[in-house]
């Protein structure tokens, strides 16, 4: 329900840019989106949370624009207001391509803790002042960041996380076979129709009726 106070603080792009001149509009097909310098990130997010009722951190993720691009990494924040039911999106470029670093927002939303750990795990972006910046999906000591553009989907050979099990089984983490897999269609090399599992009787499908 809208209260008078919230109507006064109704959010639009001009209010944010007037309050923070360094913030710029970002091209977006749906919700309002802004580019925020990482030095002002905490201030802008805190302002949106306190003054414009964007109290829900819907998502926190990142983009890798591939090697050679500058800036290479961008962190993305999706906020939702449970009062006005609006979304807003913020993007913050990481200045250093080799060791990307942005401030942690766990002081504003404790739920950012695991999101930031996932971004750190998958992209290798450091979050300053994060209370517990460890990997969350891959194991501690895994040498790569799998969602970086140069990392192959199949993986790179490395050691199992458990030294004793690795010595006992002599098994290593190996690149997965890609040919014929469900997510890989190399045109001309693999006939996807033959590669995928299917019933032997293809005489009737959802398109052609079952013969009597």
């Amino acid at each position: 329900m809208l209260t008078t106070e919230n109507q006064v603080n109704a959010f639009n792009a001009e209010t944010l840019i007037a309050a923070f001149p360094a913030v710029t509009l970002r091209a977006s097909l749906d919700h309002p989106a802004f580019n925020v310098p990482s030095s002002e990130l905490l201030a802008v997010l805190g302002y949106l949370k306190e003054k414009h009722t964007f109290d829900f951190l819907a998502d926190l993720t990142a983009v890798d624009w591939a090697e050679g691009a500058t800036p290479r990494f961008t962190t993305i924040y999706h906020l939702f207001s449970t009062t006005t039911h609006q979304y807003v999106r913020l993007a913050s470029d990481c200045l250093d391509n080799a060791t990307p670093r942005v401030p942690s927002i766990t002081s504003l939303w404790p739920s950012a803790n695991w999101h930031e750990r996932e971004v750190y795990d998958m992209f290798g972006i450091q979050f300053s002042n994060h209370p517990d910046l460890r990997r969350i999906l891959m194991w501690d000591g895994y040498p790569y960041h799998p969602l970086r553009k140069e990392f192959p989907l199949a993986g790179i050979e490395t050691d199992l996380p458990d030294v004793e099990v690795a010595a006992e089984t002599k098994v290593k983490v190996k690149p997965a076979p890609m040919a014929g897999g469900p997510f890989v269609a190399l045109s001309g090399q693999v006939n996807m129709t033959e590669a995928e599992p299917m019933g032997k009787d293809q005489s009737w499908t959802e398109k052609s009726e079952k013969p009597n």
Binding site: L137, M138, P146, A154, V171, V173, K174, P175, A176, F183
Partner: peptide, 17 residues
């Protein structure tokens, strides 16, 4: 066999260990 998960994170068949 690892099934549909042909990726860096998945063991390709538990018979490897």
């Amino acid at each position: 066999s690892g099934g549909m998960y042909r990726s860096y994170a998945t063991l390709q068949g538990v018979d490897r260990i």
